[in-house]
Computed example of a mutant assay.
Amino acid sequence: MSSIKDVAKHAGVSVATVSRVLNDKGYVSDNTREKVEHSIKELDYTPNEIARTLFNKQSKTIGLIVPDIMNPYFPELARAVEDTATKLGYNVILCNSDGNTEKEQRYLDVLLQKYVNGIIVSSNTLNVNQIEKLNIPVVSIDREISKGLPTIVVENKKGAMMATHFLKSKGCTRIAHIRGPHAIVNAEERYGGYQEVVGKETWFKESYIANGNYDMETSIEATLELLGLHPEIDGIFAANDIMAIGAIKAAYQLGKRVPEDIAIIGFDGISLSKATIPELTTIVQPIYELGETATTMLVQLMERQPIEETYRILDVKLVERHST
């Protein structure tokens, strides 16, 4: 395998000149550049990307930090980020934080050590001071960290209201909510949408709300407890699809038919929602567009391109399937 020294010797120039050609930095005459490029081709020389990164302090790489790679929503999001980054000439390092503050900070430190050009993060623990200390472009996705930080989210409250109104239109008269964690902004917004629709109903009870922690197993347990306490519940809005699938499993464990005895609707529109029996009615957010938009915005920031809008709220839609 040829080295940069071999290229320099073959072209009859210094190593520094070859380096300037490779990194397109500093003056090199057209004649010299042609000689170096010819030698690179003749010797089939491939630059050492690690050395180039150290030299430029640039890696053509972005970091993506997600809280739970086991939730199918995030692999779908990661696919969109990777596809878009590749088209724009960047690589992606995927980090799973488990929503853990210390783990998230360790990943930030590692990404900086690898000279990533920017980071896309979905976090409910990072704060604006941590972001500012990074001194590289950051885009928040799915969850808002700070009003001043470039952010891509969806109409969470609107979607939750659509879901709850839809259950009412299907004849549900006792609608429960399996909510996400209290610390997460989008979970609060979806809870707020549910409350907006049914909070003033005469039948409404605070005990119609259970925390499923955005997790299937937790949602199964929460739904079993909820229906045990309130067998009259005939509709459930779960704040994500994974919890909705857990609610369906719990309903069947109790001998309830979905949707004949209880209608269930989720939120996210993950591919798995079409594979359940019955197929899940859900509020679909544009997952691929979220990842694509966030990555494009991050690259624009990294490359100092003008950006008209750094805070984007994407719309959602209701897709009816068999669970309602």
Rank of each mutant, 00 (worst) to 15 (best):
N213L: 13
T282D: 11
T310Q: 12
R33E: 11
P278A: 12
Q58R: 15
Y90Q: 01
G180C: 04
R33S: 10
I119M: 09
P72K: 08
K133G: 08
S97R: 05
A85E: 09
K25T: 15
V13T: 01
M161Y: 01
R321H: 10
I245C: 03
Q113N: 15
S39A: 15
I152M: 00
K317H: 09
A294F: 11
N211P: 03
I313K: 11
V7E: 00
V110C: 07
D109H: 08
S140V: 10
E303H: 13
D98F: 08
E320N: 08
R79Y: 10
H177G: 04
I178P: 01
F267Y: 12
G148A: 05
K274G: 10
E308H: 08
K274R: 12
M243C: 10
N56W: 06
D268P: 01
K103I: 13
M162P: 04
R257A: 15
T84Y: 05
R179C: 14
N240S: 09
V284M: 05
E196P: 00
D98N: 14
I248T: 06
I141G: 02
G269T: 06
Y214I: 08
S59N: 13
Q253P: 00
I287C: 06
D30S: 14
I93Y: 04
G148T: 05
A244V: 13
M1F: 06
E76H: 07
I242F: 05
D83P: 02
K168D: 06
L94R: 04
V197W: 10
H177Y: 04
S3C: 12
V92N: 04
V116P: 01
L224S: 09
G148P: 01
V284Q: 15
D24M: 02
V299I: 15
G12W: 00
Q195C: 06
N124G: 13
V121T: 14
R33W: 00
E144H: 02
L301V: 10
D68M: 01
R321I: 00
A275I: 08
A11V: 03
H182D: 14
R52L: 15
S2L: 10
M70K: 12
R174Q: 14
M70H: 10
G118K: 08
V153D: 00
M302D: 08
E189T: 02
A244S: 11
Q195G: 07
D142A: 11
L254D: 08
A80R: 11
D6A: 12
V299A: 06
I236N: 02
R174L: 02
E279P: 01
M243R: 11
D234N: 12
L272C: 01
I236E: 04
M302A: 11
E308G: 14
F237I: 13
V18P: 04
L112Y: 03
L224K: 15
G12E: 07
K5F: 08
A183F: 05
S14M: 13
E320Y: 07
H165I: 09
S273N: 02
N127W: 00
V197G: 04
L226Y: 09
K147T: 14
T218A: 13
I93D: 02
P306K: 09
E49H: 15
V21D: 03
A238H: 10
P75E: 03
Y90T: 12
N129Y: 03
